[in-house]
Amino acid sequence: GGHPVTTQMVETVQNLAPNLHPEQIRYSLENTGSVEETVERYLRGDEFSFPP
């Protein structure tokens, strides 16, 4: 991942996926670069990993 992630982006995802840890959200956003894509992954039931 190398996309810039803002606190705003993390908070937006958190509102839609409250049971995800912020670190999981941030890591996913760094890989996708997209709030929409991260939320899609969540709704699909994809696994969210923590940063290594």
Rank of each mutant, 00 (worst) to 15 (best):
G1R: 04
G1M: 13
G1S: 13
G2C: 13
H3M: 10
H3F: 14
H3T: 11
H3K: 12
H3E: 09
H3P: 09
P4H: 15
V5M: 04
V5D: 03
V5A: 04
V5Y: 12
V5E: 04
T6P: 05
T6N: 08
T7H: 14
T7R: 10
T7S: 14
T7K: 12
T7V: 14
Q8F: 12
Q8A: 10
Q8V: 12
Q8M: 12
Q8S: 14
M9S: 03
M9V: 02
M9N: 04
V10N: 03
V10E: 05
V10S: 02
V10I: 15
E11T: 11
E11Y: 09
T12Q: 15
T12N: 10
T12K: 14
V13G: 00
V13N: 00
V13Y: 00
V13R: 00
V13S: 01
V13I: 07
Q14S: 11
Q14R: 12
N15W: 13
N15V: 14
N15C: 10
N15M: 15
L16E: 05
L16I: 14
L16W: 11
L16V: 11
L16C: 08
A17N: 03
A17F: 15
A17E: 00
P18L: 07
P18K: 06
P18V: 08
P18W: 08
P18T: 08
P18C: 08
N19G: 13
N19I: 07
N19H: 11
N19A: 11
N19F: 10
N19E: 13
N19L: 12
L20D: 02
L20W: 03
H21V: 08
H21P: 03
H21W: 07
H21R: 09
H21G: 06
H21S: 14
H21I: 04
P22Y: 12
P22L: 11
P22F: 10
P22G: 05
P22I: 15
P22D: 06
E23N: 09
E23L: 12
E23W: 09
E23I: 06
E23V: 07
E23S: 12
Q24D: 01
I25N: 01
I25M: 00
I25Q: 00
I25D: 03
R26D: 04
R26H: 08
R26Q: 08
R26T: 07
Y27I: 06
Y27S: 03
Y27H: 10
Y27K: 04
S28F: 06
S28E: 06
S28M: 14
S28W: 09
S28G: 03
L29R: 00
L29E: 02
L29D: 01
E30H: 08
E30Y: 11
E30S: 12
E30V: 08
N31K: 13
N31G: 08
N31H: 13
N31V: 15
T32D: 03
T32K: 01
T32Y: 06
T32S: 08
T32A: 03
G33M: 08
S34Y: 01
V35E: 05
V35R: 00
V35Y: 03
V35L: 08
V35T: 06
E36S: 12
E36Q: 13
E36T: 12
E36K: 11
E36F: 11
E37A: 12
E37R: 08
E37N: 07
E37I: 11
T38D: 02
T38Y: 00
T38V: 07
T38K: 00
T38R: 00
T38M: 01
T38W: 02
V39K: 01
V39C: 04
V39R: 01
E40V: 11
E40A: 14
R41Y: 08
R41W: 05
R41V: 06
Y42W: 11
Y42I: 04
Y42C: 00
Y42E: 03
L43G: 06
L43E: 09
L43M: 12
L43Q: 11
L43C: 09
R44C: 05
R44A: 12
G45R: 01
G45I: 00
G45T: 00
G45E: 03
G45D: 04
D46P: 01
D46S: 06
D46K: 05
E47W: 13
E47T: 13
E47S: 14
E47K: 12
F48N: 02
F48D: 02
S49E: 15
S49L: 15
F50Y: 11
F50K: 01
F50E: 03
F50R: 03
P51I: 05
P51A: 07
P51H: 06
P51D: 06
P52Y: 08
P52W: 08
P52S: 09
P52K: 06
